[in-house]
Computed example of a mutant assay.
Amino acid sequence: MTHYLWYIDIGAAAAQTVIVALIFRNYLGVGFTRIGKILLSVAATLLIESVSMIMIYYMWLSWGLGMEVAAPTLLITILNLIVTSLLYVISRL
């Protein structure tokens, strides 16, 4: 039996992936400057991390890992989602 927290984990990671893609799009305008290359690198790294989180959470879900793993990862994912949302707000300035 799978725990419902895994579905929340995967949903939060998917939301983070969308937000990071928007951040990446916001930085494309300054991508050819020195700071722009750094910002695009950070956004690309976060995008890879978000997609990796989705794949790993799905793998752990298929293994049948329970709440003992899903709850701490949910906390980490929610914190990542909050920080990524703040970065999106900053990228809009």
Rank of each mutant, 00 (worst) to 15 (best):
T2A: 10
H3F: 02
H3V: 06
H3L: 01
Y4M: 10
L5D: 11
L5I: 01
W6P: 06
I8M: 15
I10D: 10
G11H: 09
A12K: 13
A12D: 15
A13T: 14
A13H: 07
A13P: 10
A14D: 11
A15V: 12
Q16W: 15
Q16F: 08
V18D: 10
I19V: 11
V20H: 13
L22R: 12
L22H: 12
I23D: 01
F24R: 11
F24H: 04
Y27E: 14
L28N: 01
V30H: 08
G31N: 00
F32P: 03
T33Y: 15
R34C: 13
I35K: 13
K37G: 12
K37D: 06
I38E: 15
L40G: 07
L40H: 06
S41T: 04
S41L: 09
V42Q: 02
A43N: 08
A44F: 15
L46T: 00
L46H: 12
L46Q: 05
L46V: 02
L47P: 04
L47D: 07
L47S: 14
I48W: 05
E49Y: 12
E49I: 09
S52Q: 04
S52T: 09
M53Q: 13
M53T: 14
I54W: 06
M55L: 02
I56V: 15
Y57T: 14
Y58Q: 03
M59D: 12
M59V: 13
M59R: 15
W60T: 11
W60A: 11
L61D: 10
L61F: 11
L61T: 06
S62P: 02
L65S: 03
L65Q: 05
L65R: 04
M67H: 06
A70R: 07
A71Y: 01
A71P: 00
T73K: 10
L75I: 05
I76K: 15
I78N: 03
N80D: 13
N80W: 12
L81N: 09
L81R: 13
I82C: 14
I82D: 11
V83F: 14
T84M: 07
T84D: 03
T84K: 07
T84G: 05
S85A: 06
L86R: 07
Y88D: 03
Y88G: 06
V89L: 10
V89F: 12
I90L: 00
S91M: 01
S91K: 00
L93G: 02
L93N: 14
